[in-house]
């Protein structure tokens, strides 16, 4: 009996001993990852995936105003492909995006490299330029409205008048060519801060020994900038190009405030077209199809950059 008891007790002890390591075993990596990711995944699902899936679903429907939705399959996409206004908008978006990215990155990169020669002395200057990155696009639009006012009360026309170039003064937002140029200038102004900051940061990571070696070899500042600083700052510039491309591609606020897409739709990009179709015409299915097209364009721009950055990650 006691043996039995004893053996029972030993058995229980043995079972307990066998169970203990199981309880203490830590969660496998994937399990811990899932637990930690769950709140973010839930948030992402509710705030991004669900609206996205609903937008894709809506793009296959005809839904105008407050009426009911009816299934049209790929009808909205087919209509978009034949819509001359949308097609013109695509080309305009391409021109706007490439121009804003080229101008903002070009200026930001150049100024960032120049600032690297005298980091301390140029700090206030860099801060002023980077501050534009922190200003919302809508506020930036209002600032530029003041600059481009059609009469002499506009800053640009006023300055032209003071410089004796009054004959060049004009309503900058009132004709298609100058309105698009004005819009590109305003959007580039907002976007120049990021490439400046990233270029400057990239140059700061260049080992001093490299720059000293160049100096000992007799490289002049321009040659140092061209042969050493420019190539070694490229990783930062690539990030700036990627972010500015995506930002310009989906631009809306600054267009809405500055030109309202006009005159006569001459500054309407895909982002603004999407808003007009969805919120003014309330043609929600068509607007959703436009949103999907814009999303695909943003993904096409983003994916190579994301893949490239992921490859380098450990």
């Amino acid at each position: 009996m006691s043996c039995a008891n004893s053996s029972g007790g030993l058995g229980a002890m043995a079972r307990t001993a066998a169970a203990e390591p199981a309880r203490r075993r830590p969660l496998p990596d994937w399990g811990a990852a899932m637990v930690l990711l769950a709140p973010m995944a839930l948030f992402f699902g509710v705030s991004v995936l669900y609206p996205l899936a609903d937008t894709v679903r809506l793009s296959f429907h005809e839904l105008r105003g407050l009426g009911g939705a009816s299934w049209v399959g790929l009808g909205n996409y087919a209509a978009l492909a034949q819509d001359p206004v949308f097609l013109a908008t695509l080309w305009r978006t391409l021109a706007f995006t490439l121009s804003v990215t080229a101008i903002s990155v070009g200026i930001g990169w150049t100024v960032g490299l120049l600032c690297a020669f005298a980091p301390r002395q140029t700090a206030p200057f860099r801060l002023m330029i980077f501050a534009t990155f922190g200003i919302s696009e809508a506020v930036s639009g209002f600032i530029w409205i003041g600059i481009f006012r059609p009469d002499s009360s506009g800053l640009l026309n006023g300055l032209l008048g003071l410089a004796g170039l009054g004959e060049l003064a004009q309503p900058w937002l009132g004709s298609p060519g100058t309105a698009m140029a004005a819009l590109i200038a305003a959007a580039s102004w907002s976007a120049v801060g990021l490439p400046l900051l990233l270029t400057f940061a990239a140059v700061q990571t260049i080992p001093k020994s490299v720059l000293e070696a160049a100096y000992i070899d007799g490289a002049k500042p321009l040659a140092t900038m061209w042969h050493i600083m420019m190539p070694l700052s490229l990783p930062g510039v690539r990030v700036a190009v990627f972010i500015n491309l995506v930002t310009a591609l989906r631009a809306f606020d600054i267009i809405f405030v500055l030109t309202g897409g006009g005159p006569a739709r001459s500054t309407e990009t895909v982002g603004f077209f999407m808003y007009r179709v969805s919120m003014t015409e309330f043609n929600l299915g068509y607007g959703a199809a436009t949103t999907v097209v814009l999303l695909l364009a943003v993904m096409a721009v983003s994916l190579p950059a994301v893949i490239q950055r992921t490859k380098g990650a450990r």
């Binding site: 309503p171 009132g174 004709s175 006009g262």
Partner: peptide, 13 residues
């Protein structure tokens, strides 16, 4: 006046 002036003018202006 010039068409471009009208096309750049908001209702409040």
């Amino acid at each position: 006046g010039a068409a471009s002036t009208s096309l750049a003018t908001e209702w409040n202006d």
